[in-house]
Design a protein around this nucleic acid. Structure first.
Lengths: 194, 194
DNA sequence: GTCTATAAGGAGATAGAC
DNA sequence: GTCTATCTCCTTATAGAC
């Protein structure tokens, strides 16, 4: 086997380290000193790879948003009965969230203190609206319980999906597909025996 | 009507102001300068009321935890069939969360950077375990779908409930009781027509 | 591509006057 | 109970050597 070789960073490999630290300590709670220790290089060396702390945040958030919006372009999200598209998107969003866990985690925790954060929040709202439209269609088809409040149900659905970042740890407990399946089943069929 | 009179702070009235700012900017993203501007008094005056920034966090977190654990002592949480107790606790936790919104919001966002935060996270885990036990009982009674994974379902249930703090704003959209009812119905019966 | 050294400013907290 | 002034430390970011 060829030796490890990686002793230097690319912006992307540095990003992976930074995002881990951001998620552990919070973005504001993370100093460049923390990052330098985690990466094993000096503070100033970090500035050789990226312009600022905020650039790291921007890159991470972009990666997460690309993954999520990508789901809406997939065939399963564009063709067929609304309820089926909705369940497809629900499962795929959960999967993307699990595949890109650190990046999506960071995206979901953004609070709006900087321009980058406010822009991220706006794109998230846009995504939510796209899914809310699916719920509305499914309701019109009579495939949702008649008492379902669309905006409220959208919030609760994303609440359930997004909560995954708060507790999922790879290799512990249920796996990726199991979690995605549980989300879809719980959201659409509920916990109780019918 | 007697004049407003409040121009000075008690630890509790100052806490209310601080918690608002913490939730807007994040605890780490909030400086004492931010708090002083929001409260309309100088930085040093804040130290007349509380010993430190962390004491404000501790007080807020305690208030939230007291509310949540209080639910588990209520008659509806201790008597009757497990599934009924579970639904009662679900509704009441949602209600307490809405009644004590800023305090619970802060509790749920804590990341574990300080002793106070780690202690808060431990108490939250304890609370989750108490509810997981209810789910287990309800499953044993045959009142949950047979394929429900207890730890996983507990996470998703809390994920849905806790997400409320991310979007609920009093006086906009659905009201307190409506939200609590939607949570219970969505979690136990699901979104889809059966 | 990495380092040491340091600038410039903001953080939490305290002293002591009023 | 509130203020101004200040301490000390830590923050992000840059300069310039190797």
């Amino acid at each position: 086997m060829t030796m490890a070789k990686r002793d230097t960073y690319t912006p992307d490999s540095l990003l992976a380290v930074a995002v881990e630290v951001f998620n552990e300590r919070g973005y504001d709670g993370t100093s460049m000193e923390h990052l330098s220790r985690a990466a094993g290089i000096s503070k100033s060396s970090i500035y050789h790879h990226v312009r600022s702390k905020e650039e790291l945040l921007r890159r991470a958030i972009n990666r997460a948003l690309d993954g999520l919006f990508g789901v809406l372009e997939e065939p399963g999200a564009t063709g067929g009965r609304a309820i089926e598209r909705l369940e497809y998107v629900t499962r795929r969003v959960a999967e993307v969230l699990l595949d890109e866990l650190p990046y999506v985690t960071l995206l979901l925790r953004v609070r709006g203190n900087t321009d980058t954060e406010r822009w991220a929040m706006e794109r998230r709202r846009e995504f939510d609206h796209r899914v809310a439209a699916l719920l509305k269609e499914a309701a019109a088809d009579g495939d949702l319980r008649p008492d379902v409040d669309i905006p409220l149900a959208t919030r609760l659905l994303f609440g359930m999906i997004n909560s995954i970042v708060e507790w999922y740890r790879p290799g512990r407990g249920a796996g990726r597909d199991e979690v995605a399946e549980a989300v879809v089943r719980t959201a659409f069929a509920g916990l109780r025996t019918s």
